[in-house]
């Protein structure tokens, strides 16, 4: 098992959001987590990545068998967890290349490897940038500085391609994307699909799942997974909405 979440309870500012969530993900699987607003989807993403302010009150998360909750967020990232943000933040003056290089070298240091050679790195990043149609000039611009919504999301996928994580959590990566951008982003995600790498797609809509085929679809409502199924469940949700499940 790559990720094993058992009876997860978590709260934000005294308010319990996750109330006994269970989820198991094997290597190579793609899981979609869908659900109505306020169900706890973003809370789940943030708890896995280790954001401060999200307090786990009960339950456990194991990643490759180790206790994830005991690790700092940067250590989780170095261990292979990647969170693609719903609203990527701007960091003025820090170039995309600077951030990418710091991230790559942090992971190499974590793995006891030496820093990457600048030329190898540049070549590698440019190759990946091409896949998500990011102009090399954008690499020297500040992180997400003045980027459009679509550019920010593509930049998240670029970081993911560069870092090659083991577990990719994409928090509403499809929101605010036009159809062309959605295609590019999906291609980026699909390019990383492989037997050793797993994906969690957190989304509202069926749309993304037309491009990235999930193995499993889960419905998150009232702080827990209320239904799981195959890709057909997403289609059913698209037709019926969430109401019938919430009432259940």
């Amino acid at each position: 098992m790559l990720l094993e979440i058992t009876n997860l309870h978590a709260r934000v500012e005294e308010k319990e959001i996750l109330k006994g969530l269970n989820l198991s993900i094997k290597p190579g699987e793609v899981h979609a987590i869908m659900g109505p607003n306020g169900a706890g989807k973003s809370t789940l993403s943030n708890v896995i990545a280790g954001r401060e302010g999200y307090e786990v009150t009960d339950g456990s998360i194991l990643f490759e068998g180790q206790d994830l909750l005991a690790l700092d967020p940067e250590v989780r990232a170095c261990a292979g967890i990647f969170l693609g943000f719903q609203y990527p933040v701007e960091i003025p003056g820090v170039s995309n290349m600077t951030l990418l290089k710091a991230a790559v070298n942090a992971r190499r240091k974590h793995n006891g490897e030496s820093e990457i050679a600048p030329n190898d790195f540049l070549t590698w990043v440019r190759e990946q940038a091409k896949k998500v149609k990011i102009d090399p000039k954008m690499l020297s611009r500040g992180v997400n500085e003045g980027f459009s919504g679509g550019e920010k999301k593509r930049n998240e996928i670029l970081q993911m391609l560069v870092l090659q994580p083991t577990l990719m959590i994409l928090d509403e990566t499809d929101s605010g994307l036009d159809i062309d951008a959605l295609k590019i982003v999906s291609d980026g995600i699909n390019a990383l699909r492989g037997p050793a790498r797993s994906t969690v797609l957190v989304t509202h809509y069926q749309r993304l799942l037309d491009y990235v085929q999930p193995d499993f679809v889960h419905v998150l409502a009232r702080g827990r997974i209320v239904r799981s199924g195959g890709p057909e469940l997403a289609k059913e949700l698209e037709e019926k909405g969430y109401g019938w499940l919430e009432a259940a």
């Binding site: 700092d72 943000f85 960091i91 820090v94 942090a106």
Partner: peptide, 25 residues
């Protein structure tokens, strides 16, 4: 806090993140 978490979620430790953000500033 958003900028710090963004950097940390990419594997960059707190001190390095602060230094990077300040240098950018």
């Amino acid at each position: 806090e958003d900028q710090m978490f963004y950097c940390r979620a990419r594997g960059i430790g707190e001190e390095e993140a602060v230094s990077m953000i300040v240098n950018g500033f």
